[in-house]
Design a protein around this nucleic acid. Structure first.
Lengths: 204, 204
DNA sequence: AGAACACGCATCACTACTGTTGCAAGTTAA
DNA sequence: TTAACTTGCAACAGTAGTGATGCGTGTTCT
């Protein structure tokens, strides 16, 4: 009954786009990031304009506004995942991994402010990756505690939340050079570990 | 020329509202806070429904959506200001003031999540109060550094940003009892001062 | 070269939200 | 009690954003 489609993947193969169409999709996503990071509710028209395409083209590539936002989130989330994994968070020494993850993630957060928006998208794929990264973070924190980097009685969930908050705050500075990112990452890790106060009274 | 209005304040006296109208205004503001803290772009209809009034009544009391949001921000900002000032941030010992301010502000942030939204409203009055509180925070931090609570070389601006971020994060827990608020405030201050790491190697 | 695809443009239909008005019925305050 | 005020209701106008369609022209791929 079904036409003899050669090697069709399981349910629905979304068709390969032509080269120029693929380029347009990327252009739109980048424009969307730029526009939405400033005006999260900006109309599609504005995104199309920023991308240098007609509004109808945006609708051709993304069925709805929601679809566009979801695609953008998915794209940014992918970068996020790569940023974390490339720091070898499960194998590198905790102090090194902590710093490396921070710097990598900062770069992504700055470039994909909207796509990375703390909004936990309901798209299952995006949620999955975020949960995965979160678990990785927890493992890294547990190792950090085990090697004596964190206090033995540290509340790791609170620690993770603080860490996320510090990264978010640091990303607000939008560092534009690698040196600036590195300095900022150092500051984040330093603050996470020791705060901004003087050392507590030596424990007898 | 002007009618003989007894004791009129300078430019425009906005007329005292009748008792029931005043009550309605408060009811609407509270409902708006509840609704908008969950759905920041919820339509006026939804706010009216939550307040138990007709949509037209909301429009009667607040000329536009923007006016409502501004009024809500102003209201919350007032509470914010009181929360900070009542902790005597300029006179109490820094350690005490820091803790007291944190606890007070946490209570306000939890109750007025939307009104306190980090959105720096363009309303001059709101902006003024926020700037004032920020200056107070900076003074408190300077005192904290001078008494040796903060490191002498601490970057106070970064410190303030970290402090704000920690409060924001803590408020996300929405503590519902005074004990919970106090515990959370303690945790925020402790983290601000010492992070979650072990003490750095004793300086020789 | 030619078929398939992609884009811009003009146009339309549809929906959701905003803001207004007039009036009848209820509430407040003197 | 009575005059002024407030509310709900119903109806309306206006706007902005979304999403779809058809066609002529340009682009890609084979």
């Amino acid at each position: 009954m079904t036409p003899p489609t050669p090697r069709d993947s399981p349910p629905a193969a979304p068709k390969p786009l032509r080269a120029d169409a693929e380029r347009t999709v990327r252009t739109i996503l980048e424009a969307a990031e730029r526009v939405l990071s400033v005006h999260p509710t900006a109309p599609m028209e504005q995104i199309a304009e920023a991308a240098g395409v007609a509004r109808t083209t945006v609708h051709r590539r993304f069925a709805s506004r929601e679809a566009l936002v979801t695609a953008l989130s998915a794209w940014a989330t992918q970068r996020f995942h790569e940023a974390v994994e490339s720091a070898r968070p499960d194998t590198a020494p905790p102090a090194v991994a902590l710093y490396q993850v921070t710097a990598n993630v900062l770069r992504v957060k700055v470039s994909w402010r909207f796509g990375m928006g703390a909004l936990p998208t309901e798209a299952p794929e995006v949620a999955r990756v975020h949960a995965e990264v979160l678990a990785t973070c927890d493992r890294l924190f547990a190792r950090a505690r085990d090697v004596g980097l964190f206090r033995p009685d540290a509340d790791l969930e609170w620690g993770r939340r603080v860490y996320y908050a510090l990264i978010y705050e640091a990303a607000a500075e939008a560092p534009d050079t690698d040196d600036a990112v590195d300095a900022l990452a150092g500051r984040v890790v330093e603050t996470l570990l020791h705060g901004i106060g003087t050392a507590p009274a030596p424990r007898g």
